[in-house]
Amino acid sequence: MSAALILDACLVLLVLAVAVWTIAARETFPAIAGFVSYGLLLAIVWVRLSSVDVALTEAAIGGGATGVLLLGAAARLTDRAGRRPAGIGLRIMAGALCLAITAALAFVILTLPDPAPTLAPQAVAGLPATGVGNPITAVLVAYRGIDTLLEKIVLLLAVIGVWCLTPDDSWGALPAPWGTARQDDAIVLLARLLAPVGVVVGVYIVWVGADDPGGAFQGGTILAAMWLLVMMAGLIAPLPATSRRLRRVLVAGPALFLAVAFAGFAMSGDFLSYPPAYAKWLIKLIEAALTLSIAAMVGVLVIGPAVRKR
């Protein structure tokens, strides 16, 4: 048995153990602390599965955005534990069902066809037409760009949904996700030191994304985290849902993507196709605009809506 396989086994056991903890913990807060750890562990799992792009995403989302979101909620909600846990009958039935599904899945996974079908050669063969070197970026922006475009609309709808939860009398008010607590020196220092570095790292990850692991979503999430950090430190105020500037940043990326997609009809005959001569630059332009929009979207989703005036 090689060291790598032992590492994999340890990692799998740890992930499963943390997952069990997350489900079984009686109180909410420990469960969520466990869940945030699970997100960080998954980042290592992705590295082991040779998906560095996904690992970057998982690190940014699981380590940053989701954690802030869930921990913030868990620390505020007053009902920490269920009054009465689900009945033993339900638990046994659910357990049997889930066990059956796990067993079926496990069996299917172990008997998947060998050699596995793969699109890797086709994805690599198409790369010259897109001008980028990272096949995952090519999938996201070219081969299956429609998924990415619609996914941005999903994010936008989530932002709209979150804003929709503003009480009517607070529409246009500033969200105050972290209350009106006084500034904490340590957090201010962290924000002052970390935010500039973080912005550089975020831009770097988008920039290398064309040819190496990285890309708009990973970079955008890091930028969002830096935006959140300076807001947490109280250095800048969150923007209200009525801010026209914020809304324009939110739609800039998807709108540019859509415009280029339609221009594809004229330039190279197909929706969402790129003329090979300009493909690389068009894709970089789209990624840059998407990064800004994603940063704004993720930030707004974590901040949440303005709360009821009292």
Partner: peptide, 15 residues
């Protein structure tokens, strides 16, 4: 990325 975001959970919790 992990290093950049390492303090986030603690800060969010405290706030």
């Amino acid at each position: 990325s992990l290093a950049l975001l390492a303090a986030f959970a603690s800060v969010a919790f405290v706030l």
